[in-house]
C-alpha cells in the first residue's frame, strides 16, 4: 500500500423501500486522478453522489476520505476534510453577486461564518481572492458584481465550479458540469474543468461521453446500483457489457 486512495467506498449500499439504489459499490480514486462515473439513467449515480457527500446515510458500507472513515460525518464536516461538489442542477444564490457568493464560500473555508463583529468588507483578502478566482474563470468585473440571476446559464455553471474551487478541495465531485449549457457557451466550462489543478482528485459524473473520454483516466460504469465495469477509457469502451447497457451509444464515440 502506498498513499491511501483520495476517495474510497467499500460495499456502499442504500435501499429505498425494497429497491437497492446503490448496491455494494466499491470504488477507489487515486490521489490526483481524473475519474469518471457513468451509467444510464436510474443507475444510481445521484444516490451514490449523495452518499459520498453525506447528504444521505448508507444502509451498509463505508466512505473513506484520504484513508479516514467519514461515513458517520455529516456533509459539512466532510467538506471541511476537503471534499467539495458541484450540482447537476444549479444551486446558487440568485440575489447575491458572484463576487459575494464566492466570498461567502471563502469565508466558510476560513471558518469565519460564525463571526458577527466585523463586516465582510473589512475582510479585504477574501474579496480580493474571490475576484482573482472569478477572473481566472474569465468573469468580467461587471459580471462579478451583477446579481447571479442575471447571468447567462453558462456563466452560472462556471459559478457552480467557482464555488467548489473556492473551498480549495482535495477531492472534487463534478456532477454533469456542462449539463444544459448551449454549445456556444460550453467551451469555457470544459476549459475550466480541464484547467483544474492537478493536486485535486476529480470524480466526474457525466452523461456526455465526449467529455468523459476526453477527460477521464479511469471510468467506472454503474448499472442498476452496481459497478458494471471499471478501467481505462479504452478498456471500458471495448467492454461488451458496457456497449450493451448503452445500446451502442458509447461505442459510437469510442
Amino acid at each position: 500500500m502506498t498513499a491511501p486512495a483520495a476517495l474510497e467506498t467499500r460495499g456502499l449500499t442504500r435501499r429505498f423501500g425494497g429497491f437497492a439504489a446503490v448496491d455494494g459499490v466499491s470504488l477507489a480514486l487515486a490521489p490526483g486522478s481524473r475519474h469518471a462515473l457513468i451509467g444510464p439513467n436510474g443507475a444510481g449515480k445521484t444516490t451514490l453522489v449523495n452518499l459520498l457527500t453525506g447528504a444521505i446515510r448508507p444502509g451498509a458500507g463505508a466512505v473513506l476520505l484520504e484513508g479516514r472513515d467519514v461515513t458517520a460525518l455529516p456533509q459539512h464536516l466532510r467538506v471541511k476534510r476537503g471534499l467539495a461538489r458541484t450540482f447537476q442542477i444549479n444551486q446558487l444564490f440568485p440575489d447575491l453577486a458572484p463576487i459575494e457568493a464566492v466570498t461567502l464560500a471563502l469565508a466558510e473555508r476560513e471558518g469565519l461564518t460564525a463571526r458577527w463583529w466585523r463586516p465582510v468588507r473589512a475582510h479585504r483578502a477574501l474579496a480580493e481572492e474571490a475576484a482573482a478566482l472569478l477572473a481566472r474563470l474569465r468573469f468580467a468585473p461587471a459580471e462579478m458584481a451583477a446579481p447571479t440571476r442575471d447571468l447567462a446559464y453558462g456563466r452560472q455553471r462556471l459559478l457552480e465550479i467557482a464555488l467548489a474551487l473556492a473551498l480549495k478541495p482535495r477531492v472534487l465531485l463534478l456532477d454533469e458540469p456542462a449539463a444544459g449549457v448551449p454549445p456556444e457557451e460550453s467551451r469555457e466550462v470544459l476549459e475550466a474543468v480541464a484547467a483544474l489543478p492537478r493536486a485535486v482528485t476529480v470524480l466526474l459524473i457525466e452523461h456526455d461521453m465526449d467529455l468523459v473520454f476526453r477527460f477521464a483516466e479511469r471510468i467506472t460504469v454503474l448499472a442498476q446500483g452496481r459497478v458494471l465495469a471499471e478501467g481505462t477509457p479504452e478498456a471500458v469502451a471495448r467492454d461488451p457489457r458496457v456497449r450493451e447497457v448503452y445500446l451502442g451509444e458509447a461505442a459510437a464515440h469510442a
Binding site: T53, A55, Q75, H76, V79, A84, R85, F87, Q91, L92, F93, P94, D95, L96, E100, A101, T103, L104, A105, A107, E108, L112, T113, A114, R115, W116, W117, R118, P119, V120, H123, L163, A164, L167
Partner: peptide
C-alpha cells in the same frame, strides 16, 4: 458580517450552504 452573509446564503439556498 460573514455570519450575516451566511444567513442570507442559507435563506437563498440551504443546500448549497451545506455543500460549502
Amino acid at each position: 458580517s460573514p455570519f450575516g452573509l451566511a444567513l442570507r446564503g442559507i435563506r437563498a439556498n440551504a443546500r448549497r450552504m451545506h455543500a460549502l
